[in-house]
Write a protein that binds this DNA or RNA. Structure first.
Length: 660
DNA sequence: ACGATTTTCAGCATC
DNA sequence: TGAAAATCGT
């Protein structure tokens, strides 16, 4: 990367009087621009506490914080707010909780808990898809900024009315729990800002300059929140790239790029078109591919780098052959070039594709790191322990109660809980309060009643202890006194899995100790934990990176292999049918532009899908790349098919022959 | 209430 | 194919 800014980057940094959209192509140094702009704002006299930078992931926020602290001094960076959209929404709600009808210590339900709560209100016997569809309608309503009452008024058909009423019931239930879901962290602040002028004034005074990263990933609600926060002044910089919009399936709305120009007539647009990452050839291939998509604003990326190595296209027999070849190539290339392992990456469409690759790499003793996978905070043992914390902070959190009361098992089953819920409902008590109430106790049988009482007593003891204990010590005490470890031994059979879960809990403990330093208040800690999704220790180190295309966004590697470039996989089957080809093309574009020096694409003639060996066709996207830049390698798939049947030594061949 | 067995169903995965 | 959910049986 150049030491000084290029003219476009400088223009993006220095423009602080008008609202600004920075169209930042892949590898064009956009993070650099954001960091420098923060420094420039501070230099121009902005107080750090009035400068806000918003990202999508905690990881991005963390990285930005670290880079800013290096650019300006640590002390100067301290008062800055650099966080995710949801964390900003949460901050606002914590300050303005009364206006939102919430009490201090409100809980944040994750997607799972929210769905469970929703399930109880929805008509019984719905299958998973129908339920999720209905739940998504609620999300959509919040995304559009509709209150339950507005949604009911707006419903056109009986089905829509039913969904709107379900939305209303769901919000009532959340309110009873003193809880919000993830959507609410955006929807409620946007609503408050819209309706309460004084509140809006307070926040506009606080946020004097707003920077947004990955702007193409914002949804409607996030845009409305931002619009209210920046007001007519429009002191903001939005950085994004419509060609890297790959999250529309989870609500991102690239149209927001267009609306920005409509809502802020003074909007300036700066394009960052010099790519500092890829070789000339890699960039040319990427440009050729993305040129097949329609564009709102034309942008032409160029690179000052050499042409570089040809792009290779490997034809393979099946996914095992593909994995073996890729692993062998990485193995040899590393030795040959004396590169470090972390300069190599294998990218793929679906998580399941990692398996064959892992196997092949392990066989050669190549260290690797798989990104993504099940998020740390989604693991059941972590959610169990966090449920205790939530319940300590917010006794009305019935979702947390239901989780905590059943892990570890304490002879309280569904029948008991149903009875408890019935009593609690009629007396307008939360489940925990009901469990401790004498009235309710009398209506329960002796044994379950005693078990519930014991549970409530234990929580009360912890609550009292919390005052004099650090958050970390409290969590340690909860884990030990709830006998969670015996619970693990009783429910998990595989001793390796038990060890793994213990490790996770130890990791959580370490995290809480570190996070709670200086803050201490359990309330804040609990809220922070709810927003985190990945383990902080997720340090890949010096290892080959295996990653999905989505998880690879924002990363770069010297040598990239993109595997499974087949119709049905990339583009994915579902996207072909639903005409979402453009997003699939962007996905491939993102993959190609991760590569600095070499790029290898591969596809297999056959692939095992759902247990069946299926014939595959090379991706249609390969035809959109300039043939002159591609170097096709590998065996003729037809000839291989017969060879495969003949080869005596191949175990796979025999299995494949039996199946096929 | 819980473990064992059958059935189902496959994307990407943020906060 | 294989993991997770649903159902069965004690």
């Amino acid at each position: 990367m150049a030491l000084s800014l290029n003219p476009a980057q400088r223009a993006a940094v220095n423009q602080i009087s008008d609202p600004l959209l920075v169209l930042a192509g892949a590898g064009s140094g956009k993070t650099r621009v954001i960091i420098d702009k923060i420094a420039y704002l501070l230099h121009a006299g902005y107080q750090a506490e009035h400068v806000f930078a918003i990202t999508f992931t905690n990881k991005a926020a963390r990285e930005m914080r670290e880079r800013v602290a290096k650019r300006v001094s640590r002390e100067a960076a301290e008062p800055l707010t650099i966080c995710t959209f949801h964390a900003l929404g949460l901050k606002l709600l914590q300050v303005e909780h009364a206006a939102a009808g919430l009490r201090r210590g409100f809980s944040i339900l994750d997607a799972d808990d929210a769905l469970n709560l929703f399930k109880e209100l929805a008509p019984a016997g719905l299958n998973k898809d129908a339920l999720q569809l209905l739940r998504n309608l609620v999300s959509t309503a919040k995304d559009e900024g509709l209150s339950p009452a507005q949604a009911i008024a707006k419903a056109l058909s009986p089905r829509e009315l039913e969904a709107a009423e379900l939305y209303a019931a769901y919000q009532r239930r959340l309110s009873n729990f003193n809880a919000v879901d993830f959507d609410d962290l955006i929807y409620l602040p946007a609503r408050l800002l819209d309706q309460d002028e004084a509140l809006r004034g307070r926040w506009q005074a606080r946020i004097r300059y707003l920077l947004m990263d990955e702007y193409q990933d914002t949804n409607r609600a996030q845009y409305r929140m931002v619009k209210h926060l920046v007001g007519a002044r429009g002191a903001f910089t939005a950085v994004g790239d419509d060609d890297q919009s790959i999250y529309s399936w989870r609500g991102a709305n690239p149209e927001n790029l267009k609306d920005l120009a409509r809502d802020f007539p003074a909007l300036q647009v700066v394009k960052l078109e010099q790519n500092y990452r890829c070789s000339g050839r890699i960039l040319r291939v990427a440009n050729a591919l993305i040129a097949h998509n329609p564009h709102l604003i034309e942008k032409r990326l160029w690179s000052a780098h050499d042409e570089g190595k040809p792009i290779r296209v490997l034809a393979c027999r099946d996914e095992l052959h593909e994995a073996e070849r890729v692993a062998a190539e990485i193995f040899h290339r590393q030795i040959e070039s004396q590169s470090r392992w972390h300069e190599f990456a294998v990218l793929y469409r679906g998580n399941h594709q990692a398996r064959a690759l892992e196997q092949a790499l392990r066989l050669l003793g190549v260290p690797y790191h798989v990104s993504g996978g099940t998020a740390f905070f989604e693991r059941s043992e972590i959610k169990d322990v966090l449920a205790y914390l939530r319940l300590l902070v917010n006794p009305d959190d019935d979702a947390a109660f239901l989780r905590a009361v059943q892990a570890p098992k304490r002879e309280i089953g569904t029948t008991t809980l149903e009875k408890l819920a019935l009593c609690a409902g009629s007396k307008h008590l939360s489940l925990l309060h009901a469990a401790a109430s004498m009235d309710v106790q009398q209506q329960l049988a002796a044994r379950p009643g005693a078990a519930l009482m014991q549970f409530a007593d234990q929580l009360e003891r912890w609550r009292l202890a919390a005052a004099s204990l650090s958050a970390g010590d409290l969590v340690a005490r909860v884990i030990s006194e709830s006998h969670y470890d015996s619970h693990l031994q009783a429910t998990v059979k595989d001793p390796v899995a038990i060890g793994y879960r213990r490790d996770n809990l130890a990791e959580l403990l370490r995290f809480v100790h570190a996070a709670a330093k200086g803050r201490g208040a359990l309330v804040d800690l609990q809220a922070e934990l709810a927003l985190l999704s990945f383990s902080e220790r997720d340090e890949p180190g010096n290892a080959v990176r295996l990653s999905t295309l989505h998880a690879a966004k924002g990363l770069e590697f010297a040598h990239v292999w993109l595997v499974g470039v087949e119709d049905g996989n990339l583009p994915h089957e579902g996207s072909i049918n639903e005409g979402r080809l453009e997003e699939e093309r962007r996905l491939m574009y993102v993959a190609i532009t991760r590569a600095k020096a070499t790029l290898t694409l591969s596809y297999a003639a056959h692939r095992r899908r759902f247990g069946e060996l299926e014939r595959q066709q090379p991706s249609r996207f390969l035809d959109e790349l300039p043939a002159a830049d591609l170097q096709r390698e590998g065996d003729d798939p037809e000839r291989d098919a017969s060879e495969r049947r003949d080869r005596a030594g191949s175990h796979l061949a025999r299995i494949a022959a039996l199946l096929g």
